[in-house]
Amino acid sequence: MKIITPFKTSVVILGLALAGSGCAKNKDIDPSITNIAVTNPDFQLLEDAAIRGGVAITLGNKNPNDAQGNYTVFAPTNSAFNRLGIREAVDLTALQPGFLTNTLLYHVYSGSLAGSSLTAGNTSSSLLGPTRRIITRADGSKYVNGSKILGTDVKAANGLVHPIDKVLIATGGNVVQSAVALQSAQVFTKPELTLLVAAVLKCKLEGLLSQPGPYTVFAPTDQAFRDAGIASVDAINNMTPAQVTALTGILANHVLAGNLGNKFTPELPDGTSVTTFGGGSLQLGAFSNGVLTVKSKSISTPANMGIPDVQCTNGVVHVIDRVLLP
């Protein structure tokens, strides 16, 4: 995984500034948001995504719904896309087109959202609909949801660009609906979380996890379930009552509620022990490069976050690579 260092961040911002000034000199205007992505190599994958997702033309023109004609875009760098396994344009075909378009729209605000307004606790709407919130950590670093804001106020002819280090993801559904969307290949073209969905249904937890919550859910991948000895949907569906009771306890160990619910990675109390919905405990590792590990009592190796900070209507989901056995 490519890591953006402070030096690299400076290069990104400088490159954007130079791209803008170059276009201004030649055409006496700032470049559009789309042109900024095109002219800066650190936004190659964003350019590819915008073209495939059908928003490149939109962001290349004035915003008809804003008096000044502006948009504000939280712009994921190439490294941000790399976190999702997207390293070149062809990798974008792993995402369903509709999900890709909605994801891109979630990065866009209608109007000007200056860097000075990105203060802790503030929220902003998106063209997709769900709002995003600004988080500030003790070291002064700023995040939009779980994505670090690498710079602010890169000027475009039709608005502003704020580079970020992770792709923002919002499903528009609750925790259960979001898991089902992955399970039914509405997000990635390849189904995922099929065993988690089967387990939730078998334990009759779908009603609980569809309530307002809010929840923070650590969602194990299919491979995580297989590694834990739960091999298939049939194996889950054929469990005995005693096995279902045990599975219910395992699932409850993946949920945080109350004041720990609805937490993005920079908001989680890293380096501490937290109590789960089921009454167990999880040890959260150090916050590093936008993620943290999660360890339960009965696993020797902590779980890593594969896809963190998925915003749902009743909480936040972090996809992990191990089952957190109580």
Rank of each mutant, 00 (worst) to 15 (best):
I3Q: 15
F7W: 07
L14S: 15
A19G: 15
A24Y: 15
I29A: 14
I29L: 12
S32Y: 12
I33F: 10
T39H: 14
L45R: 00
L46I: 07
L46M: 14
E47P: 05
A49F: 06
G53N: 01
N63H: 07
P64T: 07
A80P: 03
A80W: 04
I86G: 10
I86C: 03
R87H: 14
E88D: 09
V90R: 14
T93I: 13
T101V: 07
N102M: 09
T103R: 06
V108S: 06
G129Q: 05
R137I: 13
K148S: 08
K155Q: 14
A156G: 15
N158T: 09
P163C: 01
D165G: 05
V167F: 08
V167M: 04
A170F: 09
G172C: 09
G172W: 12
G172H: 08
G172N: 06
Q177F: 08
S178Q: 03
Q186H: 10
L195P: 01
A198R: 02
A199W: 04
L201S: 10
K204T: 13
K204G: 13
G207W: 06
Y215N: 00
T216I: 01
T221H: 02
D227Y: 03
V233N: 08
D234L: 13
M239S: 06
Q243F: 09
V244K: 10
A246F: 05
A246T: 09
A252P: 03
N259K: 13
N259V: 13
L260P: 01
T275E: 11
S281H: 09
G290Q: 09
V294C: 09
K295V: 06
K297P: 03
I299F: 05
T301L: 05
P302S: 07
I307G: 01
D309M: 03
Q311H: 12
C312F: 10
H318F: 06
I320D: 01
D321L: 05
L324K: 02
